[in-house]
């Protein structure tokens, strides 16, 4: 078990969110979409230019930019 940032995850890799460092607007939007500590995620794919990244959480798919994924720590 190690903790890495979401950006570093590979496609099809799974992990559990440990913490979200973002505050303010970005933090709020991330939480509204269900990205909160304890949730399991799986990297679904990356856009043709490797950014943004799409991930699966609670049975639906989200997309976020790499620089946003940096704020999310994941245990893999």
């Amino acid at each position: 078990m190690e903790t890495i940032s979401l950006r570093q995850m590979r496609v099809d890799q799974t992990g559990t969110i440990v913490s979200i460092k973002a505050a303010g607007e970005l933090g709020r939007r991330i939480r509204d979409m269900g990205l909160i500590p304890g949730k399991e995620i799986r990297i679904q794919g990356k856009a043709p230019l490797y950014d943004p990244v799409s991930l699966r959480i609670m049975g639906f798919t989200l997309m976020l930019r790499n620089n946003e994924a940096d704020h999310i720590q994941v245990e893999v």
Binding site: E25, I30, T61, L62, M63, L64
Partner: peptide, 11 residues
């Protein structure tokens, strides 16, 4: 600066 992007990719 840029704004948050995070959003749903609907089925």
């Amino acid at each position: 600066e840029a704004t948050p992007f995070v959003m749903e990719l609907p089925p």
